[in-house]
């Protein structure tokens, strides 16, 4: 069974856009609607990489990254976060929490693929 890229975003449109882009490039994907959902799915499924939004209800992206990194199954799993701001503080927090890479919204599909390929392999 192939491992999935977990897409965590409260915005259905972005979630779908990311998933379609990834699955179009041959990645298996899995979707979660917020940090809590993301954590549950990340720890229950074989995950190849995570793409997560930061600003989400219930559990935001930073908490999610922190919590997932505390779980043994996150070892070696790259986490890419999406952010609307170039706010250094936000990015620093996410990196400290254990994120691997980031994308600034808006991004194009090929940019997303480039980053995924970079951190998770083709």
């Amino acid at each position: 069974m192939s491992k999935s890229v977990l897409v965590v975003d409260d915005s259905a449109s972005i979630r779908q856009m990311v998933s379609l882009t990834l699955s179009g490039a041959g990645y298996a994907t899995l979707e979660a609607i917020d940090g809590e959902d993301g954590y549950a799915k990340a720890t229950a499924n074989p995950i190849r990489a995570v793409v997560t939004d930061l600003n989400m209800p219930r559990m935001n992206g930073i908490e999610f990254i922190r919590k997932f990194r505390a779980h043994p199954s996150s070892t070696g799993v790259p986490i890419i976060f999406l952010t609307t701001e170039s706010d250094e503080d936000m990015k620093r927090q996410a990196k400290e929490a254990g994120a691997t890479a980031w994308m600034v919204k808006p991004f194009k599909q090929d940019q997303l693929l480039a980053v995924i390929k970079k951190v998770a392999g083709p």
Binding site: N55, P57, T84, E85, D89
Partner: peptide, 14 residues
Amino acid sequence: VDVDKPRDSTGAGA
């Protein structure tokens, strides 16, 4: 983009 501070908003109201 240079916006406001990060918002660690939790699930309030959602």
